[in-house]
Design a protein around this nucleic acid. Structure first.
Length: 785
DNA sequence: CTGGAGCGTAAGATT
DNA sequence: TACGCTCCAG
């Protein structure tokens, strides 16, 4: 993929810094500092005390962070191991390490405390596990295990699991953990509705089970850190000593727990530098508190706030469009991006429409191919969608036309069933107390050990408070398991585990894994499987074994799997990237396509329902993130119809389209081979604004645009002052003839099927379809029947 | 205990 | 529409 990070104007100059980092005297104005703009420079040189860097999109955020670290090292204010640098994603951590390496050379290896919140949290927790009731080899549960465990807890409390699903409890507990709340801290009445007020009780039971299993979930990694620091001030003091300087990336995404964690650690030397952009806070749904960044100065007295507003990434049209859009948000700190690079030939942000998602995909495909013919690389283009289901139409289309694409952040490798099964085997071998792993594979492949037996084992384990594998060992000595077949199967399985475990020290773990998969019959199971995806699964298993070789120990490998979510498939092929807007944050591309700007999808209905105005603002920030990913070209699409839950639904253009400034936007009339549907799907108008002499005059006066406006119906908070026309009038003007259909006539529509005309307005029909219900369609899309 | 049929519900993002 | 889960029969 294209250089996925902030590209600041000045190029790095590695040499000088490396030398200084090794201990030479610092020059008065080091090269790397002189090449920064004044604000960046201030952010780098203000090393002492709390600093908040408000870095707009494309203003050189990563550059500031990495240069700051290089500066701390070059001026010998700290050793690499004395700098704590935290990011949210593994990708960001990797990139930062890489870029610091470019600046300072191999001494970046000494940066032991550069990583994600979670990976640093685990590292600290493993060192002091016993202080919070864990052993240092504790297991990290992923969401799937987490939910299975909660299911068990819910059942153990005799609560109707259908009425109170584990999934929901998981969300509730997660939200408590995000807010830094242990079961004891949860305010009375909070989450009281769950299971009639038994939520906290379940939380407590769940935590107790985790301790028995010697396990942690993601939330615990931080929560247990907080407990550790609070209950053991000596430990905290130790880290105060250790961390001379702290740096935090994407501060706008921190949740309360992370904030508390940072604050505890920063109490020591107070040298904390947080970099973020309130306009790019898009993770409120998972507990991020924009408030953290908004009140930084209050939380860290004496803080210096530095704004980076000079953008080095995008054209002025792109910046203008994004900036204007985001001004519709309240509750922001307020930055205005600007650029010196004013290119009179730069393209405006283009807005186009499609009839449905297939046409949208086809049209974008054509745009991409056109660019390709002009010599642009696919690697420089990206399609950013709101929701992952949108990816499908693009994939289908691109497969059929043979256009290379790459899906970023799709289903993760280790989340696949076969990988999780294989890992469960490894976990049982490495961590005998891992009951969840045992329960997962005890009957995979089928061994005749059914639900009844597993429950028996489980109950015995709970009653004796021992790991299930020990309970099994005890039970197979007795007659309690009636079936001799089952008993033999269990005995064999336990014997296998023992055998594998005994080889842990004298075999390479890759080979051991292979042996386990072979002897357990797991590989065999997939070889017997005749389904289409079985070969792929076997391939994945091989890949898993291969990837193990890079790790020192089985434990190290398992930890990597638990924490490092992204498989880095940076293939060198030229390909268009398809990803969600969320995973696009931090990336940049020459050309960006933004499909699906429709009310309900973007802004997403659920966001509006759940969080109201705050939700809308977060969606708007997401739109802002999307547009600002583009360096040269941004093209926004919406389609009039989209299939959701298998039903066709007609859409209204996103309100965000209204919020784009006219002078930076160009509305495109579709003239594709499929008949060219316009904004709102009214049909081909023939003559368009392109007939006019000056194509850059008021683009909003195009009929399609007005139709979009009219279509929108209900007034929005920030509706523009755009000339509106009554639909009928507009339609009449556009076609000049009345419809050839009659009321009550039976018609056929390609997408909606059969139906009866119940209303006629010019060339527009309202049809009551048998399957799809009542829809407004243009008469050219239906045929008489 | 296993496999298949039928029903219901869900399709936002991440460590 | 698609998949996951429950229920039922063998």
């Amino acid at each position: 993929m294209t250089a996925p990070f902030d590209s600041s104007a000045p190029a790095p100059r590695p040499g000088g810094i490396a030398a200084r980092a090794l201990g030479r005297a610092a020059a008065p104005t080091p090269d790397y500092v002189a090449r920064l703009n004044p604000e960046q420079r201030m952010a780098v040189e203000t090393t002492e005390g709390p600093v908040l860097v408000l870095a707009g999109a494309g203003t050189g955020k990563t550059r500031v962070l990495t240069t700051r670290i290089a500066h701390l090292l070059a001026t010998q204010k700290a050793y690499p191991s004395q700098i704590l640098a935290v990011t949210f994603t593994n990708k960001a951590a990797r990139e930062m390490r890489h870029r610091i390496g470019d600046l300072i050379g191999p001494s970046v290896e000494g940066m032991n405390w550069l990583g994600t919140f979670h990976s640093i949290g685990v590292k600290i927790l493993r060192r002091h596990a016993e202080l919070v009731g864990l052993r240092s080899d504790f297991t990290i549960l992923d969401t799937d295990d987490q939910i299975r465990l909660m299911k068990q807890v819910i059942q153990a409390e005799n609560i109707d699991e259908k009425r109170w699903p584990a999934r929901q409890l998981a969300n509730l507990i997660d939200s408590w953990k995000n807010r830094g709340l242990t079961p004891e801290d949860v305010p009375p009445g909070d989450g009281g509705s769950f299971a009639d007020g038994r939520g906290v009780k379940l939380y407590k039971a769940y935590q107790a089970r985790l301790k028995t299993l010697n396990a942690c979930d993601f939330g615990d990694l931080l929560l247990e850190n907080l407990r550790l620091f609070r209950e053991h001030p000596d430990v905290l003091r130790d880290y105060h000593q250790r961390f001379h300087y702290m740096l935090v990336d994407e501060y706008q995404d921190t949740n309360v727990a992370q904030y508390l964690w940072l604050r505890l650690l920063a109490q020591g030397r107070k040298n904390i530098c947080c970099v973020g952009d309130d306009d790019q806070s898009i993770y409120g749904w998972r507990g991020a508190e924009v408030d953290n960044i908004l009140r930084f100065e209050k939380d860290f007295p004496g803080a210096v706030v530095i704004k980076l507003e000079r953008n080095y990434r995008s054209t002025s049209h792109i910046l203008g469009a994004a900036s204007h859009l985001i001004t519709h948000n309240e509750g922001r700190l307020g930055k205005t991006l600007f650029t010196d690079a004013v290119d009179p030939n730069a393209a405006r942000v283009r807005v186009a429409s499609a009839w449905d998602s297939e046409e949208e995909a086809r049209a974008i495909g054509e745009e991409i191919e056109a660019l390709q013919r002009k010599g642009h690389r696919l690697n420089d283009m990206a399609i950013l969608v709101r929701a992952s289901f949108q990816m499908r139409s693009f994939e289908e289309r691109f497969v059929s036309i043979g256009l290379n694409y790459r899906v970023i952040g799709g289903p993760r490798f280790y989340e696949r069933q076969e990988i999780r099964d294989a890992l469960a085997y490894l976990r049982v071998v490495a961590q005998p107390a891992d009951d969840l792993a045992f329960e997962r594979i005890v009957n995979v492949p089928k061994r005749g050990i059914g639900e009844t037996t597993v429950r028996l084992l489980h109950d015995h384990a709970r009653a004796r408070d021992i790991p299930i594998i020990e309970a099994t060992d005890e039970l197979i000595q007795t007659e309690e398991i009636k079936s001799t077949k089952t008993r033999t199967a269990l005995r064999d399985l336990l014997a296998s585990f023992g055998r594998w475990r005994s080889r842990l020290d004298d075999m390479k773990h890759g080979e051991l894994a292979e042996m386990i998969l072979e002897e357990s019959g797991y590989t065999d199971m997939w070889q017997q499987d005749r389904s289409a995806d079985a070969p792929g699964r076997l391939e994945n298993l091989k890949e898993l074994v291969r990837s193990m070789e890079a790790f020192e120990s089985l434990g190290g490998f398992l930890e990597h799997i638990a924490l490092v979510m992204d498989t880095d498939n940076t293939e060198n092929q030229d390909a268009v990237s398809i990803m969600t807007l969320h995973s696009a944050k931090g990336l940049e591309f020459e050309t960006v396509f933004l499909p699906g700007w429709e009310e309900g999808l973007f802004p997403h209905q659920r966001s509006l329902d759940e969080s109201g105005r705050a939700g809308l603002e977060e969606e708007r920030r997401l739109a802002y993130v999307g547009i600002t990913r583009a360096k040269q070209r941004a093209m926004i699409w919406f389609s009039s119809n989209r299939r959701i839950h298998g039903l066709w639904q007609s859409n209204v253009p996103s309100r965000f389209l209204d919020e784009l400034p006219e002078k930076h936007v160009e509305v495109i009339e579709q003239t594709s081979s499929y008949g060219g549907y316009n904004v709102g799907g009214v049909g081909n108008y023939g003559a368009s604004r392109f007939d006019r002499a000056d194509p850059f005059t008021n683009t909003y006066s195009t009929p399609g645009w007005q139709r979009a406006q009219a279509n929108k119906g209900s007034a929005q908070a920030h509706a523009r002052a755009v000339p509106r026309q009554i639909e009928g009038e507009l339609v009449a003007k556009s076609t000049g003839s009345a419809s050839k259909y009659k009321l009550g006539e039976r018609v056929f529509h390609q997408k909606f099927g059969y139906g009866a005309v119940i209303e006629i307005e010019g060339n527009k029909l309202t049809v009551d379809f048998e399957k799809a219900g009542s829809k407004k369609v243009v008469d050219s899309f239906v045929t008489k029947h």
